[in-house]
């Protein structure tokens, strides 16, 4: 019983964590909290079910196609919903533009795909019950993503360029860094990570057009818990959220899970507004 709750909690938590990282990657390059993060997760499930389940493309090329398609959606998000409002960030117009684009994506999928949840194909031919792919695949995906991101940000030139943009885009541009191209690349990476959340978690989420808002909602919690821009914090926050949800659902009632989740979330924000792993932003004067 305990094993079932932990397996289930870690799996859902890993999905939330990946969406949280998607928020972070987009935010780092643009200072925009894009509400398309959850929709990228939804699209990962839908593209995966379409390419592999319906079109019968083998798993590996199907996975690459899915992630490629999500990267493309990430780039389009940057061009359509983010770039036009960057000059007036203080007016928070990105809330409207990214939300509108997210709704457009959702409605398009509802019309072209289905309004009913569709099955997600089995990606690995082994495992049953609690060693089912739906439990371990999202956790594995989250681990791979955090390791790759850590290596990229710490060991590669392009990763350091991302950090420079995130730290101070004006200074980075003054140093000759191609800010626009780096921002587009970071949105493509966010697309891949968001898509991977829905793809690896397809066994739990199914290919359903309405998953987006739920993922955007719960995916934001790890960001706030872990501190905006802190990917390791997002992973820990996401896994903690998943475990908390499943434990609360088992011990109290499924009905009160959302209430309990957001009660804890609000308390945490009151206690540590910068997140559990974030530091108050300092500014050199």
């Amino acid at each position: 019983m305990l094993y079932a709750i932990i397996a289930s909690g870690l799996a859902t938590g890993a999905i939330y964590a990946l969406i949280g990282i998607t928020y972070n990657v987009m935010f780092s390059a643009s200072r925009v909290m894009s509400f398309t993060a959850g929709q990228l997760g939804m699209l990962g499930g839908v593209f995966g079910a379409w390419f592999i389940g319906r079109l019968g493309i083998p798993v590996l090329p199907g996975t690459l196609l899915t992630l490629g398609a999500c990267a493309l959606v990430g780039v389009v998000t940057e061009i359509v919903a983010v770039r036009p409002v960057l000059k007036s960030l203080d007016q928070h117009l990105y809330v409207l533009s990214t939300l509108a684009f997210a709704l457009m994506l959702q409605q398009f999928v509802a019309i072209e795909w289905s309004t009913e949840p569709q099955p997600f194909p089995r990606l690995v031919p082994f495992g049953d019950a609690l060693v089912n792919q739906r439990f371990w695949l999202p956790v594995l995906a989250a681990l791979v993503v955090i390791v790759v991101l850590e290596i990229m940000y710490r060991r590669t030139l392009i990763g350091r360029a991302f950090l420079a943009i995130a730290e101070d885009s004006f200074a980075a541009r003054a140093l000759g860094l191609p800010e626009r191209r780096l921002r587009m690349l970071s949105f493509a990476i966010a697309g891949v990570i968001g898509g991977l959340a829905g793809f690896a978690g397809g066994g739990l989420l199914l290919a359903f057009f309405a998953n987006g808002p739920m993922l955007s909602f719960y995916g934001f919690v790890p960001v706030a818990l872990g501190g905006i821009g802190n990917n390791r914090g997002a992973i820990i926050g996401g896994l903690a959220l998943g475990l908390f949800q499943q434990a609360a659902s088992y011990m109290v009632s499924g009905l009160f899970v959302s209430v309990a989740t957001f009660a804890v979330f609000i308390i945490m924000l009151l206690v540590a507004p910068q997140g559990l792993f974030g530091a108050p932003a300092g500014r050199r004067v």
Binding site: G254, L255, S258
Partner: peptide, 13 residues
């Protein structure tokens, strides 16, 4: 009990 219609995992329920 009631379960949210969009709940992704109902193991605990």
């Amino acid at each position: 009990d009631l379960i949210e219609a969009t709940k992704t995992d109902v193991t605990s329920d």
